[in-house]
Simulated scan of single mutants.
Amino acid sequence: MTSVENLKVKYPRAQAWSIGDSAELANALADLVVKGKKTASCGSLAAYEAESVPPGVGSYHIILDGQQEPVCVIRITSLRLVRFCDVDEAFARKEGEGDLSLEYWRTEHQRFFTQAGNFSEEMELVAEEFEVVEVV
């Protein structure tokens, strides 16, 4: 298996991270990314601003599974700010989760942000879209 260190040689400024708030969810979401079903994700603007090197359009990222092993490399193709209450059906579908509906997206993301202690209907999110450039 390819290690994060080996991938960072090929993608020197790539950050490595998993999606979700549990190992089980990280595995499921990484699988959706690899299969091309998940082409978008989001996080709170506050979390984005707290990162030492926030992602930018064109940046590469190593997606990890729940065991912190790399599964693929993505490239960010789009970033935009959107309030939680303004996320639309098209973006929810690109997130690739559950039944792909906006209702499912709202329920799961409200749970996630509430658990993180920062949910608000008006909260600003960084909505990112990406493409898979390499499956490990």
Rank of each mutant, 00 (worst) to 15 (best):
I62R: 07
D31M: 09
E108T: 14
R80T: 08
E51F: 01
D31Y: 05
D88V: 04
I76G: 02
F91Q: 06
A90L: 07
V57C: 06
L100V: 05
S44N: 03
H61L: 11
A30N: 13
L79H: 07
S78H: 13
L64S: 11
R93L: 04
L102D: 07
A40T: 04
I63K: 06
L79A: 05
I62Q: 08
S59N: 13
Q110N: 03
S52I: 09
L32F: 04
P54A: 05
S59V: 02
P70W: 01
V87N: 04
D99Y: 03
G43D: 04
L100C: 11
W105Y: 09
L64H: 10
Y48A: 07
W105P: 10
V73Q: 02
L64G: 12
Y60M: 03
Y104C: 11
L32H: 12
A47E: 12
E69Q: 15
R93C: 12
V53Y: 09
L81N: 08
I63N: 10
E49F: 02
C85R: 15
S101T: 15
L79N: 06
A50G: 12
G56L: 03
V82P: 00
C72G: 08
G98I: 03
T77Y: 01
V87Y: 05
A50N: 14
R75G: 00
C72W: 00
C42R: 02
P55L: 09
K37G: 15
Q110L: 03
